[in-house]
Nucleic acid binder design. Sequence first.
DNA 1: ATACAAAGTTAGTCTATCCTAAATTATTTT
DNA 2: AAAATAATTTAGGATAGACTAACTTTGTAT
Lengths: 222, 222
Amino acid sequence: MKKPVLSESQEDYLKEIFKLREMNETVSMQDLARKLDVRPPSVTGMIKKLCAMNLVEHEPYKGVQLTETGEKIALEVLRHHRLLELYLARHLNYSWDEIHEEAERLEHVISEKFEAAIADLLDHPTHDPHGDPIPTADLEIPESPDLLPLNSLKNCVNAGIGRIMTQDKDILNLLSRLELMPGQEIELIKNDATGIRVKVNGNQYLVPHTIAMLIWCGKTDI
Amino acid sequence: MKKPVLSESQEDYLKEIFKLREMNETVSMQDLARKLDVRPPSVTGMIKKLCAMNLVEHEPYKGVQLTETGEKIALEVLRHHRLLELYLARHLNYSWDEIHEEAERLEHVISEKFEAAIADLLDHPTHDPHGDPIPTADLEIPESPDLLPLNSLKNCVNAGIGRIMTQDKDILNLLSRLELMPGQEIELIKNDATGIRVKVNGNQYLVPHTIAMLIWCGKTDI
DNA sequence: ATACAAAGTTAGTCTATCCTAAATTATTTT
DNA sequence: AAAATAATTTAGGATAGACTAACTTTGTAT
């Protein structure tokens, strides 16, 4: 099937539907409106159009879903985005909190050639700097390690940070200063009502629960 | 003065006005329409808008000119474009005929940060792969060597290619195969009605006049 | 000087995407 | 189960940037 040419806006809709679907069972108009920063009627309108293009399915007053074609496109955009994030961080010295914004704009305009070139340069990575999986060139989602939010771990555990579940620049900035980022090994000292006390590279921090739930870890031992 | 936020379309108008002004004394609506691939009424309409924003000056039925602010923006876009071209060629292995198209899309979406990052990486170059001057960070146009079109040179001259005056992909592709590109040293064997016979890296070619006029050279001796 | 051609402009449409206000449907509370 | 609330949709409108058709201005050639 021929790939339709989509506007940036349309690509964003498909991408957000995909990301929301990963979290929730069903994707509501309102969630989409919030994520895309538009009013709900705009979403209804655009969804109608995407429906007509066979990229999404929509039962009025029920949720939205991607069709197979729609999902392919969403994955392509996501691949662009996440490859770009890693690329910006690794090769252009972007700090951890700057990559998302730039990738958000670039993801829609880079060619297949550009995508292939940076994928090569990065040695075909499977995860971006936030720990999000990067769809492969044939648009499969790579396996990710089993992860749990930091605040759900018990005391006295060693763990490796696998993924950071926010795009908030200030939080990302903070976390990167504290070296609480994917790839880091941490030691969980105590988990109580005041927060989670962790040790990273010799430094100890008390991480509040609100933040700890954004930090997903894979246990290295019990 | 605060820099206005422009659409990609508006940026393209300013950039083309600038480029046309370098060639011709006056920039006509029709030239613009041709370059931008739109109809003349669209140009009139957009020029009106840019006029109202104090980015261009326009006497109806006469030509268009950039204001100081307009020129600054044009130079910024041009800097993005030309830095990107060099970047794509040097760091992402783009072939010589592919860089223009990609840069054309990227130039509008990269941030100041991106611009600075690749400028650094490229060691603040003054010319792009076509030999076009890259405006500096403070938007001055760097000095370029004195150049003449290849077809205007006399027999038996050594020369260095300085600039290629076309964006046609097929011609660029051809020239790069023949190694007729900026930086190359060439020897001019003969220049007659049949064309210009040149020697490059040991190979001889007969370059037709139509192509030779696109290849601008600096003489290395007489 | 007039007439014609070329270039430029005006007027009126179209499409994409967003918006607000109002109406409808679904869900939750009592 | 009725009322209240929340989510969604419909209707109608705005704006940006393109378009065509028709008109105006300018410049040129006889």
